[in-house]
């Protein structure tokens, strides 16, 4: 152990040249993506939206240990607020988006109130109920378009409109990047440490001076804010919203993203959201999906136009995560990294 420790290195974002290099590569890929995969632009944008949701949900579930099976409710609040403010009140997109995030955050406080006293299955049902209630209520509020929803065109910035797919992609990618870095920094510092302490032992955490109610509420708020922002972006990306987008299975899908990627890891949120979203969008053409398609070809199974199969695959992955690799995709990646570092020994 070296005697002179540079403590900043422990928490520094992108410590060392290797990390800086790979992050730069990643950013270049994000910027170049619309030109590298023009046909997949919608998919990549949707992955960006879902990454934001997964980042927030992972802070709540992975770091703080609080289950939420109602996150689609927060996404819905963000989406509807953004759209209504833009369409009916003529408020520019950035303000409407932030308002959507903040309203979702306030609902996060409302959900946190009962959640403070609940654990395990009781918290699961309370959040599930919340998500379903939001969906039903939104479908019945007059002026929100009922079950047909509302359509929306582009991002009105006040002085200009962003309507092109590429433009919308860059907005989503930029926000996702900023929110990803913010999530990483929150997790690595005092607040994130308090969250993890609550997850591992709430009694010891409070004995060390952490206000449990305050920090659990904060975790719900951050998580709901992420979901709300993502909701606004999703609405613009799709060009419409309706209550059926926020069915409770969608909440379960968000939950699956976080678990598949790796609970408690920012990189896990990114990997999980990308993997699950990719699978879902390609659900009726699984034979063309890498790895899985190859396996299917190997067993000569043709799953073209077989809906339901993605559910089976996602479900199997969840079960495997619990039985084999509790850290999800991120854990697998860590193993590969350690394997290469020690290679060839």
């Amino acid at each position: 152990m070296d005697m002179k420790r540079h403590h900043y290195e422990d928490v520094q974002f992108l410590h060392g040249w290797a990390n800086k290099f790979w992050f730069a590569v990643f950013v270049v890929l994000v910027i170049a993506a619309p030109y590298m995969f023009p046909a997949q632009l919608f998919l990549i944008s949707l992955i960006g939206v879902n990454i934001i949701i997964a980042l927030g949900l992972n802070i709540l579930t992975g770091n703080t240990g609080q289950i939420s099976l109602g996150h689609a409710g927060f996404v819905a609040i963000g989406a509807y607020t953004t759209v209504v403010l833009m369409q009916s009140w003529m408020i520019p997109f950035p303000a409407a988006l932030i308002a959507g995030g903040i309203l979702a955050m306030l609902f996060g406080v409302i959900l946190a109130l009962p959640a403070l006293r609940l654990e395990g299955p009781y918290l699961a049902i309370a959040t599930l109920a919340f998500g379903i209630a939001i969906k039903i209520i939104l479908g019945n509020i007059p002026g929100l378009g009922g079950h047909n929803g509302i359509s929306v065109i582009g991002m009105d910035l006040g002085f200009t409109m962003i309507t092109s797919e590429v433009g919308i992609y860059y907005v989503i990618a930029g926000i996702a990047l900023v929110m990803g870095i913010a999530a990483r920094n929150i997790v690595k510092s005092r607040v994130g440490r308090a969250f993890q302490a609550i997850r591992d032992s709430d009694i010891a955490a409070s004995a060390a001076g952490i206000n449990l109610a305050g920090y659990k509420t904060m975790s719900f708020m951050i998580s709901a804010f992420y979901a709300g922002i993502a909701g606004g972006l999703w609405a613009v990306l799709l060009g419409y919203i309706n209550p059926n987008m926020f069915e409770f299975v969608v909440s379960i899908e968000y939950f699956a993203m976080v678990v598949v990627g790796g609970l408690g890891f920012v990189a896990g949120s990114v990997m999980g959201a990308a993997a699950v979203t990719y699978l879902r969008v390609n659900s009726d053409n699984l034979n063309s999906v890498p790895v899985i398609g190859w396996l299917l070809d190997l067993m000569s199974i043709d799953l073209t136009v077989q809906t339901g199969v993605t559910w089976v695959i996602t479900g199997i992955v969840l079960i495997l995560v619990v039985v084999l690799e509790p850290l999800g995709l991120y854990g697998i990646w860590l193993r590969i990294k350690i394997y290469w570092r020690t290679w060839p020994f």
Binding site: V11, A182, N185, R190, A197, I210
Partner: peptide, 20 residues
Amino acid sequence: LGRHMHMKTGVFSASAMLWK
């Protein structure tokens, strides 16, 4: 974590932990 009460970083300052 035992230092929690003596530290001052909040959510916003934590998000902005970008330079030394």
